[in-house]
């Protein structure tokens, strides 16, 4: 069980270079349960890099990430990440020969989800995938594949939910449904970290907003603090 007195996720001086290109210079952030944090910024500003490092998917060039007090990039840290973090990337990664229901069954099985059947039905209903339950990925549009991936990522147990561009490709009803679900998830004690270009979605859901520009964290704060700083306006994000 996570220690309630310390932040759930701590990123210190987190940065990543690809060759001589700095994708993210340095991210310092403490994040707690029952909190939603939005990363906003232009394409290529370093949002996905930051989220991938927080989720233990990408090795940092510098800095550390601690989740529940464990350095996730040290040996053994991946166990903590896999147990506590659900990461949903923006590009759907689905088995070409498994149906939507198969994917959810697999996730339920791999994560030992006790009430997998009920939760599967709930998520399929939420994303309007009920009628596509037995469809293969090649029979789905990109948006439906994205919904399948979201449903899988939300089915498993987690304390930290990291979503990369979760609303891109979603229709308005699904966007609204996801918004409500993430709000509920947050209310139940999970930390929700997501990147988005949808500023309204970010404003409505996030307790804090991290504005990233050219690999640098421009400002971190509540919506009002970000607006007051003028940094978001400078980056053309307001």
């Amino acid at each position: 069980m996570a220690d309630t007195h310390r932040p759930l996720v701590v990123a210190e001086g987190l940065g990543r270079d690809f060759g001589d290109v700095t994708a993210l210079e340095s991210l310092d952030l403490e994040m707690n349960g029952s909190e939603a944090i939005a990363l906003i910024g232009h394409n290529g500003s370093g949002k996905t890099t930051a989220l991938s490092m927080l989720a233990g998917r990408l090795e940092p060039s510098r800095g550390t990430v601690h989740i529940a007090g464990v350095d996730v990039h040290r040996r053994g840290g991946s166990d903590t990440v896999r147990a506590l973090v659900s990461f949903i990337p923006d590009a759907p990664a689905l088995y070409p020969d498994l149906t939507v229901a198969d994917h959810l069954d697999l996730v339920g099985m791999a994560h030992g989800v006790g009430d997998a059947e009920e939760r599967t039905d709930m998520l399929l209903d939420l994303f309007g995938l009920e009628e596509r339950r037995y469809s293969l990925p090649r029979e789905l549009s990109r948006g439906l594949r994205q919904k399948t991936q979201l449903a899988c990522g939300l089915l498993r147990p987690y304390e930290v939910l990291i979503l990369d561009e979760p609303v891109s490709g979603l229709d308005p009803p699904s966007r609204q449904a996801l918004h409500s679900l993430l709000r509920r998830v947050k209310g139940e004690g999970a930390l929700v970290v997501f990147s988005t270009h949808d500023l309204i979605f970010a404003e409505d859901l996030a307790d804090r907003i991290v504005v990233v520009g050219d690999g640098r964290v421009a400002v971190v704060g509540t919506r009002d603090e970000v607006v007051a700083s003028g940094q978001a306006r400078e980056l053309g994000l307001q």
Binding site: R57, F87, A93, L94, V107, A110
Partner: peptide, 16 residues
């Protein structure tokens, strides 16, 4: 591993 295997199996609590 294939990309889906990494996403849904290797990233799960299964013994890596």
């Amino acid at each position: 591993f294939t990309t889906p295997e990494l996403q849904w199996e290797v990233a799960s609590p299964l013994n890596r």
